[in-house]
Design a protein around this nucleic acid. Sequence first.
DNA 1: AATGAATGAGCATTCATTCAT
DNA 2: GATGAATGAATGCTCATTCAT
Lengths: 200, 200, 200, 200
Amino acid sequence: MEPDLRRLILDTTRHLLVEDGYASLSMRKIARAIGYSATSIYLHFENKDALFHALIDEGMDRLHQALKAVEKVHPDDPIARLHALCRRYVAFGLENPEYYEVMFMLHPQHMERYPAEKYRRARRNLDLFAAAVAAGGARGVLAVEDARVATSVVWSALHGAVTLLLARRVDVRIDEAAFIEAAIRHSLRGFVPLPEPVIS
Amino acid sequence: MEPDLRRLILDTTRHLLVEDGYASLSMRKIARAIGYSATSIYLHFENKDALFHALIDEGMDRLHQALKAVEKVHPDDPIARLHALCRRYVAFGLENPEYYEVMFMLHPQHMERYPAEKYRRARRNLDLFAAAVAAGGARGVLAVEDARVATSVVWSALHGAVTLLLARRVDVRIDEAAFIEAAIRHSLRGFVPLPEPVIS
Amino acid sequence: MEPDLRRLILDTTRHLLVEDGYASLSMRKIARAIGYSATSIYLHFENKDALFHALIDEGMDRLHQALKAVEKVHPDDPIARLHALCRRYVAFGLENPEYYEVMFMLHPQHMERYPAEKYRRARRNLDLFAAAVAAGGARGVLAVEDARVATSVVWSALHGAVTLLLARRVDVRIDEAAFIEAAIRHSLRGFVPLPEPVIS
Amino acid sequence: MEPDLRRLILDTTRHLLVEDGYASLSMRKIARAIGYSATSIYLHFENKDALFHALIDEGMDRLHQALKAVEKVHPDDPIARLHALCRRYVAFGLENPEYYEVMFMLHPQHMERYPAEKYRRARRNLDLFAAAVAAGGARGVLAVEDARVATSVVWSALHGAVTLLLARRVDVRIDEAAFIEAAIRHSLRGFVPLPEPVIS
DNA sequence: AATGAATGAGCATTCATTCAT
DNA sequence: GATGAATGAATGCTCATTCAT
């Protein structure tokens, strides 16, 4: 009857996720929300984990689309590209809290069953950051010791900003946009190729 | 019989949390661990949330103790102090994974009932960072535009590092200690009072 | 497409039964195994019980084939025939554990719907035993008071041996083959027309 | 409220067992039958298996009481004792079909969790048979090659009779009592030390 | 201060079956 | 003949919580 129940399940799950959180999400709840029996969900997803994994996949793809778009805008300016990637990343997290929660906040235990092959696919996003970082290092416009480490460091700063914002933990007196911009700049400034290291 | 059952409950819960994780923690399990009936817990805590809130309070206090200790070591060097604060913060998170989770990652929904007054108390920890940042700014050793924002930015970077590490999301080929140090340095380098802004 | 899907269903179900056991057998599983939809099974069998009843019929037929083969080997020696029938019976039970279970151990409740007419057909197997017993009695080589009773008695001894073995209840220190042979001999010796032992 | 809910659960379970069979027995069904919530059952039994195991224990004990009583009646006549043991065994099975089903008809898979220590206790019943068989062999009134095997053989004959009767598989034209007596005699006659018939 | 007894709601998952096509 | 979509009922079990004592 429903043209695409699978789609409906995925979308509904995403919304429930952001409203009630992962912990309180149950198959029954999803079923109730979509107006189908719980059994019907199993027609489209092998089990709860499979459903979440599908959501993760989608999220990773969407994020990838968003980030890739950036890449083309600044093909020759690694710094500008990195900056734009950061903005996009944070924007994605704030605009898609549902996706973001399953994608990056799920407990490792649940991720164990996530197929390794998909992990690789998920890592493509990080690779876009890595490419920009490496390019900046190669051109000497960014001071990069270890590109791998540097990439993760940038990512973790962005992730911290997104999660604190989503959890509403950031001081309410701080303007959200200002905070985001400050966080990104701050992180990028860490790459400044300096005459003098300051922190010994 | 027990001089302070409330104390015992809190300690036991904390240990169970660190050892077995949040998801598997139940009132029954706590009761079994302390050797009292589950009902007894309700004599000291209104419900599970109240128990967790008490735990969060304690966690914030413990973190505060840990951070305050640092303060005295470098009373006159804001940069060293900030650096040490960061290290301590990350160490605390990694040493008390599930504790950290309860403190900072609990779904907002659960936090709604958390009294605003306690939120303020929890913010004392951030104040220690803020003080160091402000001191550095005042002395001109750190380039700080808005101390409030800067503090939150540093915190969010640390939080990102902790959560990614706890979720085992950081590339396994990266040495954990190296990653932490890089993340902290990177964040502090963002404060370098520079002749030249790089990101326009 | 399939020339005889009914046939395929029965065979597959039997195999699944022998391999995975009764408890784990479901219509879905059968459907998957035959490569048809679950719905298709209902085109050939009214419901699960009907399928099982058909299976019981077949089992009875198969057992009948096995036992009849014996009959011809010893047409003139009732004792040898009876002995061989017993061996065959036990062998059949042990070789088709779960099949045997469905045939003889299904709860009466499930059997209520089993048509009385089929019961009669099932009884043909017992008749083979009865014939041997009667023949032995007629020839005076077996001491038989009431052939009907005697037949059931022999059968119940065999059934007891099979079921205890299938349930792994027989002392593990006893060799299975030795136990079977002892059980059969013991039962046959009950027919000894004294003072002459017949089975050496 | 209920003086002994554990008792009530055990008794109710037994009755449901004989009425509906093991396969269809569920914790909820038991709960409904006793007028308590399903959860309450878990206050007295760790899980479904534990409940069944308790039932097995009780059954074994009751059977043991019944068989032990026999022992004293014929202390010096192994044959009479064995005969009486057999009668009692069959009588117990027919009078306590509920117990009998859990005790001897449960699937091996469910028995795996049955503590080994209890298995030993359960074997006491077989030991009573073994003692009589051995005594008869020692006195030369029973022809016993291997007492262990002989005991199991007798038991399996009795078990076969009980289960066929319980499953209503025995020809309805046969008088139940006559069948039982014939089965027992037949089995004992297998022990006849020829050339003298012992059981008249 | 402490508890044993009890429960309703919930969980993921499986099942046999139905029905419109 | 065959099926995909759908479901209601059921399963064992866990949980936070309550209440009378």
